[in-house]
């Protein structure tokens, strides 16, 4: 049967010890420990709803065995920003109507953040299409998501420039 092991995990800057079975996915672990903002849509890497950042890089948590995370810091949508200190992407998604049912939203914002960090900080619409093609949205037709990413990225650049 499966072995269990206690792992030290860093979720949104909080370090915790979690007992994890060897075949457990990061999605299962995160939801089990209360990070239910990470959504389960398909468990096969087909939808992107479960995306989280590992050291700033977006992965599908449903395809990641928790045991392989190692020391990498896990960031969920809650770790990006809060109502009190919102991340510019969160503000843009809310204000521009990019979240409808909202179920894809955490993964969508996580994937956007990763794209802006690793691919381009100045995306055009095609860059966005490319960066978000692993995140299905069934409500918005993506149009307001394109708007929100363009707007959020701009706000991030301005914040960066102001520093």
């Amino acid at each position: 049967m499966t072995n269990r092991k206690t792992l030290k995990m860093t979720v949104n800057d909080t370090v915790r010890n979690v007992e994890v079975a060897t075949n457990e996915t990061l999605l299962e672990t995160l939801r089990r420990v209360g990070a239910v903002e990470v959504k389960c849509g398909c468990e096969k890497g087909d939808c992107g709803a479960c995306a989280v950042l590992l050291d700033g890089m977006a992965v599908d948590s449903c395809l990641t065995l928790t045991h392989t995370v190692g020391t990498r810091a896990i960031t969920t949508i809650k770790g990006l920003g809060t109502a009190e200190a919102p991340h510019p992407l969160q503000t843009a998604f809310a204000e521009l109507g990019a979240a409808q049912c909202g179920y894809c939203t955490p993964g969508m914002i996580i994937a956007t953040q990763s794209m802006l960090t690793h691919d381009t900080a100045t995306p055009d619409e095609n860059d966005i299409r490319h960066g978000l093609s692993g995140n299905l949205c069934r409500c918005t037709g993506y149009t307001k998501i394109y708007d929100a990413v363009l707007e959020g990225a701009k706000a991030m650049r301005e914040t960066e420039a102001a520093k």
Binding site: G45, G48, A51, M57, A58, V59, D60, L63, T64, A111, S114, M115, H118, H130, G131, L132, S133, G134, N135
Partner: peptide, 12 residues
């Protein structure tokens, strides 16, 4: 690589 799956899978 550019048309390979989606970003998260490409990252992994």
């Amino acid at each position: 690589a550019d048309v390979f799956a989606g970003q998260m899978i490409r990252n992994t």
